[in-house]
Design a protein around this nucleic acid. Structure first.
Lengths: 389, 389
DNA sequence: TTGAAAGCGTTACCAC
DNA sequence: GTGGTAACGCTTTCAA
């Protein structure tokens, strides 16, 4: 079998308790004893049994990171930011380093809940939930419950790039004192927790509304009037908030009429951008600008535009969200809202460690910064030039 | 305290052993007992204590995945492939699902070793090492030792997108029977393990040589003669193998003379590509094509070329490695070698689970498939057009 | 098919 | 400062 604490203790001529103290550095130990123990550790190539210490100490070195898709740089960058804090490279040995358990949910509520249970089972020290949330009320209730359980189990919970937990929705006419309920799909009634029962995870939210508004205002300020919007999946907060910002900009400019026809829903990927742009071209003969739900979608849109012989941004201006490092190359003229993904992840890591205090009120809104990558052109005068395709 | 097995057992009116058997499904349990236990689990919201079961069972549900940088889609895609197999979404409950511990080493040998120790400490069920290896002999020895330890501790080891462990280097004139040694930096002698002592991890290697060769042959077949190469960091296997393939193609065409001046080393990132391309432009007045160590580097090169007024691929053809989804948008004419990153990751996941048998001989070479994204142009006749910059 | 009980390797409390 | 020793919660033999 593997070398144990007792083996090390025997070799060093001390008790197991002493070895534990040396290794954890929590208690004072005499210098000479200490070095004797460390030598024994070296000689025996002793490696602590993590599960055993987690069992005894009732906590682990694991931090769960829930992401939609780890292959998407949006989440990869956040995960990298988290790791930079929970496992800093400059610490001498492995002491105090936490490990990141990355969980790909694919945006599925069920997977999200499953992973939360698995992380609770591991007695994870913290759980970080990233990216937009699904807006299904039943799931929000289930999620709140799961987070409450995992918090009670001693884990810190951090939301990163994700809005705060919704306050419970009250059904109209509900008794003020009874726990409110929400109509689930098919009319099933779902009990909602009282606000006081909601967990209060630290939350780092992105300013999706403000960013989307800035993006569209920028297009309007250039003179664009026929602006299409490529939105994400309908049931996600990220999607809704970005659309709201987009609409607010249009409304302020008196351009919101008929906006429904100029918004196309899809997924957060390139293919969606491609298909969506083709759909917009079909619907909008006068299209001069496209705002996309994120950079990846914007890239797909660029491809569709190029394919029919339109140029970006001379014929159609394209804007995106996220500021992924690749988007800059893909469309040099892309106007982008920059989300500080790495820094948000890093801060989430500090919150997960308990090193940084939660923001006042529990929620910090992280500004989305408008970055104009290159000159974006004003709309061409007259109707869109007829091209091949 | 939290709910324990004993609580569930009490509630269900059975023994702890029975509850354990129901939960693990390893032993036959009477149907009625079984449902009684499951009901108790539900009612008490019981969640298994992972560390406790890991301690008792001497294994955990953790799979370590070592990557250079999780923010790089190259590694993100591989990690996604791993997860698709170790935590398939279609299993009913959480049974048998493993968690991926993603460790960002930043390419540092020390970090690599540190993480291996941390994963051994967690009693990880498996460890997957991804991406090119550092070629420092001392580190190879240390790595081999660490892998041997972790294998002895019961973990499976899988190399993914990474060459097999080097056989020990023999110093010239070394005694045939004594353990060979290698001269470390500064002349320090590092003991090398005998071949028999080397661990034999399952290995999924990429055909970096073949891919790079195909890439350069493609450029040559188009008529290019002045081909620059943007290489990765000097001390990595990936870099060396890709350069070897590049050189082989040049030699076969009689173009290898003076190749040293046409290879620029850098990192595997965009900035390196940008700087490297500028350096190539300086050194090679007749440059008509650039082969890059990977897609990200190629993107940087495109930016540098555009900046001085050159067009891709009309003035300079650019090729890349990896086939990242973004590269297609960034340089529509980029010629790329496709590495099946997701599939390699998935297969690594199966090997990590022990579900799939290691390839015969331990090593499977995964073909790098040349994919020409769009027509790449032949070299312009005459010297490079003089442009701004 | 089920139960009792002996570990698994640490931690942390209590003495000394 | 150090040692002894109960937990910690589960798995797994061994009996029944």
């Amino acid at each position: 079998m593997a070398v144990t604490l007792a083996d090390v203790a025997a070799r060093a001529g001390v008790s197991a308790a002493t070895v534990s103290r040396v290794l954890n550095g929590n208690y004072p130990v005499a210098g000479t004893t200490r070095s004797r123990v460390l030598r024994a550790v070296e000689e025996l190539e002793y490696v602590v049994n993590g599960p055993a210490s987690s069992l005894a100490a009732a906590t682990s070195d694991l931090v769960g990171v829930l992401v939609n898709d780890i292959a998407d740089p949006f989440f990869g960058i956040i995960a990298g930011g988290v790791q930079s804090k929970i496992a800093p490279v400059d610490v001498p040995d492995a002491r105090g380093r936490k490990l990141a358990v990355v969980c790909t949910t694919g945006g599925s509520p069920e997977q999200e809940l499953t992973y939360l249970t698995l992380l609770q089972r591991q007695r994870a020290a913290a759980v970080i939930l990233t990216g937009g949330a699904v807006e299904d009320p039943a799931h929000q209730v289930a999620l709140a419950a799961a987070l409450r359980r995992i918090e009670r189990a001693g884990a810190r919970v951090v939301l990163c790039g994700r809005p705060p937990l919704d306050p419970p929705v009250r059904t109209e006419g509900a008794d003020d004192t009874a726990p409110p309920t929400a109509g689930g799909p098919g009319g099933a009634e779902v009990p909602l927790p009282h606000p006081a029962e909601l967990p209060h995870p630290a939350c780092l939210a992105f300013d999706n509304r403000g960013g989307a508004r800035a993006l569209t205002e920028h297009l309007i300020s250039l003179g664009h009037r026929e602006i299409g919007y490529l939105a994400g999946p309908a049931e996600r907060t990220t999607t809704r908030h970005r659309i709201e910002g987009h609409r607010a900009a249009l409304e302020a400019a008196g351009l919101a009429e008929g906006i429904g026809d100029r918004v196309v829903h899809g997924r957060f990927d390139r293919d969606s951008g491609y298909e969506g742009a083709r759909e917009l071209l079909r619907r909008m003969p006068g299209l001069t600008a496209v705002a996309a739900a994120n950079d990846t979608v914007a890239l797909g849109a660029c491809a569709a535009l190029r394919e029919v012989g339109l140029r970006v941004p001379e014929d159609v201006s394209v804007t995106g969200f996220d500021d992924l490092p690749f988007a800059a190359e893909a469309a040099p003229a892309l106007t982008t809202v920059r989300l500080p993904l790495h820094e948000a992840g890093a801060r989430a890591g500090l919150l997960a460690l308990g090193v940084e205090e939660p923001p006042p009120g529990g929620v910090a809104v992280i500004d989305a910064e408008l970055r104009v990558r290159a000159s974006t052109a004003p709309p061409p005068s007259g109707p869109r030039p007829a091209r091949a395709g």
